[in-house]
Design a protein around this nucleic acid. Structure first.
Length: 267
DNA sequence: ATGATCTCCTGAGCGC
DNA sequence: TGCGCTCAGGAGATCA
């Protein structure tokens, strides 16, 4: 479900609504989610949330003693609820807050994870630079592209190359840059690296400004869907005309995922 | 080491 | 209507 803009939207919601509040109750339903938590989640009781950070698609909730590392997978949602609100199916964790509200984690497919740890995250040590960080420069991207024999689409999806880009924005960025998803990363001409970097950053920032992209079930922490859907050029537009050249948008499988592209103007 | 494939799980949407 | 099939925004393990 969520890619970088959606996760960042959620981070902002958590920063606004959760920071400074203390967790007074932990109700863990036993998942299991993708990963077990190194420290028991019940130890979060009595701890105050100090900061909420994001790296790639991971959220880091810094508490008094350690960090809660959250990945939403495909269908994870963090929702602020009143205690009397009916519980949705697949609610795995409820954090009771000091002002009576609850923060609930709901995740039907259970591809997400919630881990409480006292140490630094080891899951992302091999990750690349975050696509919205200042370190994501054309020079850096050029180096990474040159070292990769993967097709551009697979390159962008690989979190160890560039962190935070998912299937929607990989398709959209390649369309904006006019680059074929099949082109090998190392065969990207130097002159097209900066346009690609800009396309990735622009599409992420524009989506973020709209609160992300929603298909079926993505909502932010107060249940609002994202509005970027209206601006997608090729993603899930198979058979429709390319907004730039009018050719028919196609779909193909790459690395087990759907790639949407325009055969007319992506070279 | 790198890239491709499979897998975890549930739900939605489609064709029959 | 109801069944079975395909597909889904992620990423880690495993294989070549």
């Amino acid at each position: 479900m969520p890619e970088l803009p959606e996760v960042e939207t959620i981070r902002r919601g958590l920063e606004r609504e959760l920071c400074g509040h203390t967790i007074v109750r932990v109700d863990w339903r036993g998942g299991p989610l993708r990963h077990a938590s190194p420290r028991p989640l019940r130890c979060l009781q009595g701890q105050r949330v100090r900061h909420v950070r994001r790296y790639a698609k991971f959220l880091y909730l810094d508490v008094d003693d350690g960090h809660i590392i959250v990945h939403l997978g495909m269908t994870g949602k963090l929702l602020f609820c009143a205690p009397d609100e009916p519980e949705r199916p697949h609610t795995h964790l409820i954090l009771g807050l000091d002002d009576g509200r609850e923060l609930r984690y709901v995740d039907p497919r259970r591809f997400g994870s919630i881990r409480y740890t006292d140490s630094h995250d080891t899951a992302t040590t091999h990750y690349g630079v975050d696509a919205l960080s200042p370190a994501f420069t054309a020079a850096h991207l050029a180096d990474r592209l040159a070292a990769s024999g993967a097709p551009l689409k697979a390159f962008l999806l690989d979190q160890t190359k560039v962190a935070g880009v998912g299937n929607i924005y990989a398709c959209e960025a390649l369309w904006r840059a006019g680059l074929s998803p099949r082109r090998l990363a190392k065969n990207t001409p130097r002159s097209r690296v900066e346009p690609l970097r800009k396309a990735v950053v622009d599409v992420l920032e524009e989506s973020l400004a709209q609160g992300g992209t929603s298909f079926n079930d993505y909502v932010d922490t107060i249940g609002e869907p994202g509005k970027f859907l209206l601006q997608l050029a090729v993603f899930q537009k198979e058979g429709q005309p390319c907004p730039r050249c009018g050719a028919e948008v196609r779909r193909m499988a790459q690395a087990g995922r759907s790639t949407f592209y325009c055969p007319g103007c992506q070279r």
